[in-house]
Simulated scan of single mutants.
Amino acid sequence: MVPRGCILAVLAVLCISRLLCSHGAPVVPMSPYLMLCQPHLRCGDKFYDPLQHCCYDGAIVPLTRTRGCGNCTFRVCFERCCSWSLMVKLIGQSCTSEPTSDDKPCHSLS
Rank of each mutant, 00 (worst) to 15 (best):
Gly5Ala: 15
Cys15Arg: 02
Leu36Ile: 08
Cys21Phe: 08
Pro39Gly: 09
Asp49Gln: 04
Leu8Ser: 10
Asn71Glu: 11
Gly68Glu: 15
His23Ile: 11
Ser101Cys: 00
Ala9Asn: 02
Pro39Lys: 15
Leu86Phe: 13
Gln93Asn: 12
Gln52Ser: 07
Ile60Cys: 02
Ile16Leu: 15
Pro62Met: 06
Cys81Asn: 03
Pro50Arg: 03
Glu79Phe: 02
Asp103Met: 06
Val61Thr: 03
Asp49Phe: 11
Cys54Asp: 12
Ala59Asp: 08
Gly58Asn: 13
Met1Ser: 11
Asp49Lys: 05
Cys81Tyr: 06
Glu98Cys: 04
Pro29Arg: 10
Ser83Tyr: 06
Val10Thr: 14
Gly70Glu: 06
Asp49Arg: 09
Gly5Glu: 15
Pro105Asn: 11
Gly24Val: 10
Cys77Gly: 03
Cys43Asp: 12
Ser94Leu: 10
Cys54Glu: 11
Pro32Asp: 11
Val88Gln: 06
Asp49Val: 07
Pro26Ile: 01
Ser22Thr: 05
Leu19Thr: 09
Pro62Gly: 03
Gly5Met: 10
Cys54Met: 10
Ile60Pro: 01
Ser22His: 07
Gly58Ile: 06
Thr66Glu: 15
Arg4Tyr: 08
Leu14Ser: 07
Lys104Cys: 00
Leu63Thr: 04
Asp102Leu: 14
Ala59Ile: 00
Gly58Trp: 04
Val76Gly: 02
Met1Tyr: 07
Cys95Asp: 05
Pro99Gly: 12
Cys6Phe: 09
Arg42Cys: 07
Ile91Ser: 10
Arg75Gln: 07
Val76Lys: 02
Cys95Ile: 01
Met30Arg: 14
His107Lys: 14
His107Trp: 09
Cys54Gln: 08
Val10Ser: 06
Arg80Ile: 08
Leu34Tyr: 07
Gln93Gly: 01
Val76Leu: 02
Leu41Lys: 11
Thr73Gln: 15
Lys89Gly: 01
Cys81Arg: 05
Ser97Asn: 12
Pro3Asn: 13
Met87Ala: 09
Pro105Leu: 14
Gly24Phe: 07
